[in-house]
Simulated scan of single mutants.
Amino acid sequence: MGFFSDYIPRSGDKLLTKWAHYFEIYERELTRFRARPVTFMEIGVFRGGSLPMWKEFFAPGSTLVFIDIDPDCKAHEIEGTHVEIGSQGDPAFLASLADRYGPFDVILDDGSHLCPHQIASFEALWPHLTDRGVYMVEDCHSSYWPGFGGGYRNEASFIEYSKRLIDRMHSWYTDQDALFPFDDMARHLNSVRFYDSIVVCEKLDKQQPPTSLAIRNGKVEPSRKALTLRNRSSVFANKDGR
């Protein structure tokens, strides 16, 4: 686990609670952000154990913001960090943080785990994520708990919301305009990655629609024809016995 396998044995007296497999995910998703100072926000402070960990993980000079609804969490603030008190379900509070500290390179939601809060926070903060930044929501198994606003295949859960993000990302290619119209999220969402209990959304501001390249003998011919076709069918139709 690189950094985390070194850090955990020498962590301090502030309690840090994470599922064991999260640290490998952090290593995979966040290592590229260590090379320079970044702006990082974590939703959820609890006992304060993550503050010193993230302070050491990210480069010196990084802006590290932590939010929690519990006023007692302000006491966990350490040098080089900012602890702000407010609800992740309050768009006005989140907007004030974005104005003060944003834009953010990394946002990590380890807050209430309530599906309505996870969705509200994502929608409020996604516009304030930098190009190539990542938005991570952890403990997404709460999407399968009715008491957290979830439940299996509950459309109101964050997992189901995230699945719909995949559709929105692919709406460039729609062939059913009335049923599945183009969604502007396609211009900003580069990938949605699902891990056990963690969803990672990567941002990429795309100035132009996707381009198909036909390449032969070193010659490249770009085209966007596939984005405008309707009622298309496979060129392999009736060639496989069906």
Rank of each mutant, 00 (worst) to 15 (best):
E56W: 06
E84F: 06
F122D: 00
S162V: 08
S121Q: 08
Y135V: 01
I159M: 05
I78Y: 05
F122S: 00
F104A: 05
P91E: 07
G147Q: 14
H76Y: 15
M136I: 15
K55P: 02
C140E: 00
L51R: 12
V65R: 02
Y101G: 02
L114Y: 15
G80H: 06
I107K: 01
H113I: 07
F158G: 01
G48M: 04
E155A: 13
G61E: 03
G61A: 10
A98C: 15
S157F: 11
Y101F: 15
S162G: 13
F66I: 09
I69L: 14
T81A: 09
A92C: 03
K163E: 11
F58C: 01
G102S: 11
F148S: 02
G49M: 11
S87I: 07
H113V: 09
S62G: 09
E138F: 11
V65E: 08
L125T: 04
P127G: 12
A120N: 13
D90P: 02
L129K: 03
D68I: 06
H128P: 03
E138V: 12
H113K: 05
A120T: 15
G133D: 00
D110V: 05
I159P: 00
H117F: 04
F66A: 03
Q118P: 02
G102P: 08
E123C: 10
T130E: 12
E84H: 04
A120H: 12
C73V: 13
I67Y: 00
E138L: 08
Q118G: 05
E56I: 08
H76M: 13
G149W: 06
S162M: 04
S162W: 06
P71L: 13
A75H: 13
W54Y: 15
L64Y: 07
G111E: 08
A156G: 09
Y152S: 02
Y152M: 07
C115G: 05
I78Q: 13
I119A: 06
S87E: 05
G102Y: 05
Y152T: 09
R132N: 14
G48C: 04
A92V: 14
R132W: 05
R164Y: 09
C73F: 12
Y144N: 02
Y161V: 02
G89I: 10
K74T: 13
G102M: 07
P116Q: 05
E79P: 09
Y152N: 02
G86S: 11
C115M: 14
P91M: 08
L125A: 04
L165Y: 08
F148H: 11
N154L: 03
V83M: 09
F66E: 00
P91F: 07
L51N: 09
F93A: 10
P127E: 10
Y161F: 15
E160F: 04
Q118R: 03
L64P: 01
Q88S: 14
T81Q: 04
D131W: 06
T81H: 08
C115P: 03
I166W: 13
Y144H: 03
S87T: 13
L125F: 02
R153H: 14
S112P: 13
M53V: 12
R153W: 12
D131K: 06
E79K: 12
L51A: 11
I107G: 00
S62T: 10
P71T: 11
I166P: 00
I67L: 14
K163I: 12
Q88L: 11
T130V: 14
L51V: 14
F66H: 01
